[in-house]
Nucleic acid binder design. Sequence first.
DNA 1: ATACAGCCTCACGCCGCGTGAGGGTCAACA
DNA 2: TGTTGACCCTCACGCGGCGTGAGGCTGTAT
Lengths: 227, 227
Amino acid sequence: MSVRTLHYYGEIGILEPRERTESGYRLYGAEAVLRLQRIRVLQELGVPLAAMQRLLDGEGSGLAEELARLRKELATRISTLQDLQLRIGGVLQLIEQGGIAEPAQMFAILRLMSGLSAGLSDEERELYAERREAVGEQRIREVEAQWPPLIAAVRAQMQQGTDPQDPQVRELARQWRALVAEFSAGNPQLERGTVQRMREHGSELQQQLPEAIPDAELMDYIRRAMD
Amino acid sequence: MSVRTLHYYGEIGILEPRERTESGYRLYGAEAVLRLQRIRVLQELGVPLAAMQRLLDGEGSGLAEELARLRKELATRISTLQDLQLRIGGVLQLIEQGGIAEPAQMFAILRLMSGLSAGLSDEERELYAERREAVGEQRIREVEAQWPPLIAAVRAQMQQGTDPQDPQVRELARQWRALVAEFSAGNPQLERGTVQRMREHGSELQQQLPEAIPDAELMDYIRRAMD
DNA sequence: ATACAGCCTCACGCCGCGTGAGGGTCAACA
DNA sequence: TGTTGACCCTCACGCGGCGTGAGGCTGTAT
């Protein structure tokens, strides 16, 4: 709370001092403090200052409606931010694993992960919607975010020529199975769809980071590790 | 993506057209499209445009560091928004129950709910920190948010003179017990602290919405409902 | 030839203040 | 009695990320 802020609130007419001294100093009363606290609350909620007068001096019904609107808005804002958080988390995980180092790859992954849920048919979309109800959107996104790092890790092992029966690879295969199970929840149609969708997904990604897309060789490798 | 946006990106030097026609029309190439997509990704992540040139043209290490920084920032942004969401949800719940209708009360509740975790001793703070580890911050906030509506509902019944043994009231008492259990997780020190803290909390709230603070009468009423 | 869509540059406006410049006011201390 | 600071005042410009004109040129369809 700077002095300038108080002046500004006066300028736009949402908070006036109770009076002025002879020399022009602003004197704020206790009610101004209360009003200021409310302004801060509304501001936190994302209400623009210009809209506050109505809410501060209006009736309860108006405020209630506005709060309901804000709740919706907050929900969407949070879910976009959470999406970003998972995407950024996936990229950082890959970086730490030494999977990627080039900016082009990082950007590609950031974009891939936003597109995982794109390109679905209507039927699949419905199946996912049901699943979302059951498991919670949060969990769905967490699971989705684990694909690219896992695929990259498997491919790294494959290219190093590690035996598929090696304990490390078998651990990755275990994670793979777990992810597939989480993802499809026993629904074979979704299970088939997932990997295929990744294969079709985004030409930029295929150029920039082909190792994030499972191909036949990788699928064969992981199958052998699962035995 | 408006035309003006592209012009602006040119002005600040983060995205230039590949060439111009004789008549001055901008011609963007495929690489400009790629760069633009990256700009959008970074912008979603909250990177200011001025900082993008370094990230787009710099080395992977710089980008990786920035991503790590952004992850932290995102986490705090999300948690403040979630806090707001719970507060607003609590108020709306109360409004729908018919518990409150005056703007003053709504603001008071919005502020109370932000202050529930304030005013703790160091020791209590440690206990909460442990608990937070165990249950997850999200759950803690969800539980905290349920107090004010519950208290208000109980008080409403009490003031209508409902018998504490009435099924409705006993249901509220059951919720009360469950909340206390969640809150204190078997730690009697925290259990004692919670209600007392609410009683001491905020003089504005006591004036504006005394029914949200449990007093001796209400505590007695709920005890009788628990028999 | 004419209409109309789309491009160009230049310039001001928006929000929520931050940050000066240039000057007055007030309590404390020499 | 001055003088020193720490505060206050008004006025005015600046930021970021564009939106929104005004006034004019270009390109394509009819």
